[in-house]
């Protein structure tokens, strides 16, 4: 089971990031969540949502949603090589199990843009 995104339903409220951040850090921030709202192209009204898992990244961009293996992503850029370590800044999604909660981003999303499958 994993968290998936219906990108066109998303309105960019960032509540999913806040809920995920709360589950990891028991505080409110948007800097350490496993689910990430992409809102870097504001003038174009372009935004999407991604979810990091141990093995891949689910990318919900307005043009379509897809899971992308981390290796494939790296191939788009330069490779860190086999010795590269995953960094701890953002944890992979654990479906909120470590906090003993139901998946919080799915529960909080007001637009039902996130779902489990």
């Amino acid at each position: 089971m994993r968290v998936k995104v219906k990108p066109l339903e998303c309105t960019g409220c960032a509540l999913c990031e806040l809920a995920c951040g709360y589950h990891w850090d028991e505080a409110f921030s948007m800097i350490s969540s496993s689910v990430m709202l992409y809102r870097g192209e504001e003038k174009k009204g372009y935004m999407g949502v991604m979810v990091k898992t141990p093995e891949d990244l689910f990318i919900g961009r307005p043009e379509g949603a897809t899971a992308m293996k981390l290796g494939e992503l790296q191939k788009e850029g330069a490779s860190g090589g086999a010795s590269a370590k995953p960094i701890l800044i953002r944890e992979a999604c654990d479906l909120c199990e470590s906090a003993g909660l139901e998946p919080q981003c799915v529960a909080i999303c007001p637009q039902e843009a996130l779902y489990l499958e």
Partner: peptide, 20 residues
């Protein structure tokens, strides 16, 4: 978040490390 801006031809080397 740059490796996942899904732009083809992006050149990035583990950018998370910078913030770490």
């Amino acid at each position: 978040k740059m490796p996942v801006t899904w732009r083809i031809g992006l050149k990035v080397w583990e950018p998370e490390k910078v913030r770490m």
